[in-house]
């Protein structure tokens, strides 16, 4: 039977969305799904992982793993893969997912299909689609090395399972590989980002461009986002002008997002911005200029002033959503 390991990322005791998606993708490959949970006091995560689709969990609970660090996490994944020789290892293509998977694949000299938007198993070999040239081209990539095959999955490209609270399974405890004295780095502090919803996981994003006119112009964007439970995005022009922090930038040199609904207000739709949002399911463009390139990509377009339209939308959504 195919054995699929899924490295499960968690933050603040919560299994992150890309890991739920990876468990969903693992389910489509057939076989037994082993979740890997590394951290400190991770029992809640283990439970959530069973509910989200894991058949079995390898848990490594240790002080040295309390926050993600490259060296101890990579060394541990490498060791577990070496000892168990699974057919496949999956993880979300998140900041930490890329690091641990890239590192372990290098240690083991195995192929890694990175940033996949589709994944299949043909004759025992993983095959995937990976968008390249900012999504202008799709590449089909395949593993050619023997043994364990690695893949990281783009956020929101795979469907998570409906959580099933009746599921549980066997938990195997393992030990860390590195002692604190072997680890060359320390996480000294952490500052949470302002927005409540992470751009990469968001189902809805409301983004502002130079049309908002200044930092205070993001207020109507934030108000609409609040009502919709959406994340706030931005064009590079507004980030470069210092109106909003870089973390919000969508596009080629920012984040690539793929929400169900992307509302672009006061954004012209330059090719580099499109690179970050073109795969959004529904795109709404609000712009004063009827010739703005964003209308070429949008599902729905409204020509008009964002300072009138956004508050009107906020009001109508509030009524409709009963808020």
């Amino acid at each position: 039977m195919t054995s699929v390991f899924v490295w499960l990322e968690h933050f603040d005791g919560v299994l992150v969305q890309p890991s739920r998606e990876a468990l969903g993708a693992a389910g489509t490959l057939g076989g037994k799904i082993t979740g890997l949970v590394f951290g400190k006091n991770v029992d809640a995560v283990v439970k959530a992982a069973f509910h989200a689709g894991a058949d079995e969990i390898i848990k490594v609970d240790d002080e040295t793993l309390e926050t993600f660090r490259f060296e101890p996490y990579v060394a541990l994944l490498t060791k577990i893969v070496k000892d168990n020789t699974p057919d496949i290892v999956l993880a979300g293509h998140t900041t930490r997912g890329r690091e641990i998977m890239g590192g372990a694949a290098a240690d083991l000299d195995k192929g890694l299909l990175a940033d996949c938007t589709e994944l299949s198993l043909e004759g025992g070999r993983l095959k995937a689609v990976h968008p390249v040239y900012s999504g202008k081209v799709l590449s089909t990539i395949e593993i050619v090395s023997d043994g364990t095959q690695f893949a990281t999955l783009r956020g929101r490209a795979f469907t998570p399972n409906e959580p099933d609270a009746s599921r549980s399974g066997n938990v195997i405890s393992a030990s860390p590989v590195l002692a604190e004295s072997d680890i060359a780095s320390k996480v000294e502090s952490f500052e949470a980002s302002v927005g409540k919803v992470s751009l990469s996981d968001a189902a809805i994003i409301v983004s502002g461009g130079r049309g908002v006119g200044g930092p205070e112009g993001f207020a109507p964007i934030r108000e609409l986002a609040e009502v919709l439970g959406a994340a706030v995005g931005a064009s590079r022009a507004t980030v470069d002008a210092g109106w909003i922090p870089y973390e919000h930038q969508v596009g080629q040199t920012g984040k690539v997002v793929s929400p169900d609904l992307y509302i672009a207000a006061g954004i012209s739709g330059a090719i580099q911005h499109q690179a970050g949002m073109r795969t959004s399911k529904t795109i709404v463009a609000i712009n004063k200029d009827a010739d703005a390139p964003i209308f070429g990509l949008a599902t729905y377009g409204i020509v008009g002033d964002l300072f009138e339209l956004l508050p009107a939308l906020t009001k109508v959504f509030k009524e409709k959503l009963g808020k």
């Binding site: 694949a105 000299d109 195995k110 192929g111 890694l112 299909l113 095959k127 968008p131 390249v132 999504g135 202008k136 081209v137 799709l138 590449s139 089909t140 990539i141 395949e142 593993i143 050619v144 090395s145 073109r278 463009a285 209308f295 070429g296 990509l297 949008a298 599902t299 729905y300 377009g301 409204i302 020509v303 008009g304 002033d305 009138e308 339209l309 508050p311 009107a312 939308l313 009001k315 109508v316």
Partner: peptide, 30 residues
């Protein structure tokens, strides 16, 4: 290598053309 590219493809066109929403006021458009 561990990985090879077996093919390149142009992505599918986005389905459909933009639908413009008109109205006499911002409220109506919204």
């Amino acid at each position: 290598p561990g990985v090879k590219v077996s093919a390149y493809q142009n992505p599918p066109e986005r389905a459909g053309k933009v639908q413009m929403i008109d109205g006499d006021s911002a409220d109506e458009k919204a």
